[in-house]
Every structure is written in C-alpha cells, then in structure tokens.
Design a binder for these strands. Sequence first.
DNA 1: TCACTATATTCCTATATCGTTGTATAGTTA
DNA 2: TAACTATACAACGATATAGGAATATAGTGA
Lengths: 108, 108
Amino acid sequence: MAKLSPALVEVVAERFKALGEPARLRILTALREGERTVSEIMNATGLSQANASKHLQLLHSLGFVARRKEGLHVYYALAGRDIFRLCDIMCGRLEQETTARRKLMSRA
Amino acid sequence: MAKLSPALVEVVAERFKALGEPARLRILTALREGERTVSEIMNATGLSQANASKHLQLLHSLGFVARRKEGLHVYYALAGRDIFRLCDIMCGRLEQETTARRKLMSRA
DNA sequence: TCACTATATTCCTATATCGTTGTATAGTTA
DNA sequence: TAACTATACAACGATATAGGAATATAGTGA
C-alpha cells in the first residue's frame, strides 16, 4: 500500500469519519439494492427529512453516493460497491474478536 | 456481505469512527513496521504523551492494536494487517475520484 | 527509601457535529 | 398565479471528544 503521507492521512480520516456515523451507514445500507429518493431513504432509515438531507450532502461531497434529479425527486445511489468491502472487513474483525473472546471464556 | 443489522450498524460505526481521526491513523501508520513503545510512537507521530496514550487506549479497546508490557515500557503492535486493506480501499476510492475529476477537466 | 522514567488517568476547555425547527427553493398541477 | 410536494439550507441547542496541564501509578536503580 501507499504509505499514508501526512496530507493523505487527513483525507483518508475524513472518509472514515463519514462512515463512522450510524445514520450514514444506515443510509448506505438502504441504498444497497438500488437508487432511492430522499423520501424513500427517510422511510427506510427513520431519519428526519432535514437530517437525511444533510447526511446525503456529506456522503455526496465525499463521493460515496451519486445523485440524479428527476422532476421533484432526487435519486441517490451508491457510487461503488467497495463501501461494503469496507464493512465486510470491519465485520470480519468483529467476528475474530468474538471468537477470540469465546475461546478465552471457554478456557477459563 | 451480512446485511448490517441495526445493532451491527452501531458497532461498525464505532470502528470506523475510530479510524476517522488523523492522530489515530498516524499511530497505526507508525506501527506498520512492527511494535513500538509509547515513546517511540510519540516521536513518530508528534503526539503528546497523554494524547498518544489516550488514543492507544481506544485503539486497544476496539481491538486495533495489541499491547505487551515489558519493564517500564509498553509495546503496542498492530492487531492485524486488514487495517491497511481498509486504507487501501479508501485510497483507491480517492484515486478514482481524482482521475474522474481530471477527465472532467480535460473534457472542458 | 528516594529519585527517576515510562505510561496512564483525571480534569478542563475549546471545538465539532448531531438532530431539530423553521424557512427557502424548485418543480408540479390546477 | 396559487397551492402543493420534495428537497435543501440556516440557525440553534445539546452532546461528544480532541488536546493540554496536572497528577497518579508502576517499574527501576542508587
């Protein structure tokens, strides 16, 4: 991997921080099966309109989601599948942790 | 991938948030080549002692780093290489963005 | 025991950001 | 134009957290 230069560190951290918010992860999860309007995202996630809109702005500005305007509606969609690769790795880590914990428990 | 359940979302977000801090990314980068004492990490990252210690506690509590005590020193080490796979994916996203931007520029 | 070093912890302040409320804008339909 | 809907934006309060300063703890050596 490219060694994280000081400048790069800031940018990469910004991306991780964006994913470090349950509301935004919920939005991304809601977009897994295809593009959705803001209203649909609100329903799927339980977020308020203003709140959903703000999170979507951020996700869009960082390139996580694409937007498409059609009449009154704005459709948002995932800008790539690699977001879920990230989540997979995180979940993999979690599994390792829990199995390790289980081993510790059973050993005692 | 396992669909992110509501409970899982919270936990995964917590992990991403931990990586969403430049100081902690700098620490992890400093640990790339092997275990380091807190003092060494302070030198490598420029963090203050208290600050480095606090970030290390968090990284350790989330399973990102392992610790080993030896005399006066405490050695920290990466708990796995997958952290850099995460960074790689993020950097890959960044590259795609910049090349896409470049295309837009040249097209105009 | 005393002095010293390495690390952890506590307390404090400043800043960031989440979520809400209210409002503005843009598109649609009558 | 007027009324309505979908989305965005601005302002605000509340909470979280980063970093600094001071202190505590633990290990070492004289």
